[in-house]
Simulated scan of single mutants.
Amino acid sequence: MYPTDFEADTSHLTLAEDGAYNRLLRLMWMTAGCSLPADDAWIMRRMRVDEDTFYTVVKVVMDEFFTVQKGRLISPRLAKEYQKTDVAHKKRVAAGSKGGAAKALKTNKSGSTNAKAMLKQPEPEPELIKREAKASPKKAHRLPENWTLPKQYGDWAIEQGWPDQAVRLEAEKFRDFWVSKAGRDAAKLDWLATWRNWMRNSKTPKFSAITGGHNGQPANKSEQRVTSFVSGARGAS
């Protein structure tokens, strides 16, 4: 745009008409062939205006600055600028093509003397890329028939509060259950985790219920009465 020329030709337009004119020019410039369909309904939708605005603003600008040729709305001044730009672009493309061809020809001539020598040179052998061995995936396996409770398993259970006697009992139950179990579920990836879940789900009580109560005392009142009775009977004898 040439601001001085543009202002001289459009200074009589209202602000709305000036905006409509600028938008029409931009739409044309972005469209192949630098023209728009001479279709009022299409232009109305593309300009995003209602019918009243179209006929009182856009249509006024179209009638003054644009012409219709072969069903297309064009701006004679814009078409000339577009043509200049298109020609200049084609010239740049043509010049670039010629320059590239000349450069390729020059390279070809200068390199022709070395062509035979280059052909005699053996091609370098491709480097061998060492692939890291993938770690073999962990496989599930059954519990061995001669399984005994590992120290790690027992230590964990005792730390959780089960007395030694209860841990031994659960270990026997654990071995008998999994050794005799059939099917795919009998194989496990992590037997330590299986043991932990086994103990968590176990109904064997912790602490005093197995050892006989706190400090060796009976765990419930019924046992306390029996113990007192036995003790009394021994004292009387």
Rank of each mutant, 00 (worst) to 15 (best):
K138Q: 02
A88T: 02
W198V: 02
G154N: 02
Q217H: 07
F54A: 00
A236D: 10
D52P: 03
K116R: 15
A233H: 02
A8T: 00
F229N: 00
D176L: 12
A95W: 11
A16C: 10
G99Q: 10
V87N: 09
W162N: 02
P122G: 13
N220C: 07
A209P: 04
T194D: 03
E64P: 00
K151W: 11
W198T: 00
T194M: 07
N197D: 11
T4F: 14
A157C: 08
K90Q: 13
R23Q: 12
G100P: 00
A117L: 14
W198A: 00
L27P: 03
S75N: 11
K59P: 01
E64D: 10
T211D: 06
L143F: 09
E123M: 15
G96K: 08
P137R: 05
L192E: 05
G99C: 08
G111M: 13
A88H: 03
R23H: 12
K116N: 14
T194Y: 07
M47C: 08
N201K: 10
V226K: 04
S208D: 11
D86I: 06
A8M: 05
F177R: 03
W162K: 01
E127W: 13
D164L: 14
R72W: 13
R234D: 08
Q83K: 12
G19N: 09
D50T: 10
V93S: 06
R131H: 15
K70W: 15
M28N: 02
A115S: 11
V167Q: 04
L149K: 01
Q217M: 08
W195V: 00
W42L: 06
R72D: 12
Q121S: 10
S202H: 08
S180V: 03
D40V: 03
A101P: 02
A20Q: 04
S222F: 14
D9E: 15
F6D: 02
A133I: 09
Q121W: 13
S228I: 02
A135P: 04
L24T: 01
R184P: 06
S208L: 05
R26W: 15
D155Q: 07
K173L: 15
G235W: 13
R77I: 09
D18F: 14
K221Y: 06
Y153A: 01
E132A: 13
F54K: 00
M1Y: 13
K84G: 09
S35C: 14
T85P: 00
E170A: 08
S11Y: 15
I210T: 08
W198C: 01
G154F: 09
M44W: 10
W147E: 00
L119S: 14
G71M: 06
A187P: 01
S110Y: 15
A32W: 14
P3Y: 10
K203F: 15
P144C: 04
D86E: 12
P37N: 07
G232C: 09
I210L: 12
G71A: 08
S112K: 15
L13G: 03
A88C: 02
F207N: 02
K181Q: 12
L119C: 14
